[in-house]
């Protein structure tokens, strides 16, 4: 599966356009991490726990998008965009979407 946020893949032709595919997940860290992050907020710096949380979530969202693309017979997803929103305090939502296409070999 080829993933790209370009519109076109250089040197490859798009054979079929298969439409919008999307993947999303909502995740939360356990309460202990929330406390640690709160403490870390006092001194600033990177919140490792949350970086990890969002990283995991982004991977999962991408994975789900790819799963959708696979299911409809695509071999690439182009023009991928990511969006983050916090649905509830302490939980974050990761959303990935793009256009599934079939590229020529």
């Amino acid at each position: 599966m080829l993933l790209s946020n370009l519109e076109v893949v250089p040197h490859k032709k798009i054979v079929r356009h298969l439409g919008l595919v999307q993947g999303s997940t909502v995740r939360a860290k356990h309460a202990g991490r929330d406390i640690m992050a709160g403490l870390k907020n006092l001194v600033g710096g990177e919140l490792k726990g949350y970086t990890e949380l969002l990283q995991d979530a982004r991977e999962e969202a991408t994975g789900r998008m790819v799963e959708q693309a696979n299911a409809i017979g695509a071999n690439a997803v182009l023009n991928i965009r990511y969006a983050t929103s916090s649905v509830a305090s302490g939980a974050s939502e990761l959303f990935a979407y793009g256009t599934a296409v079939e590229l020529e070999d």
């Binding site: 079929r16 789900r64 959708q68 409809i72």
Partner: peptide, 14 residues
């Protein structure tokens, strides 16, 4: 003419 379609995506992924 380009080949355009929107195949149905199965449920239960998201």
């Amino acid at each position: 003419k380009p080949d355009l379609s929107n195949p149905e995506i199965p449920e239960g992924i998201n």
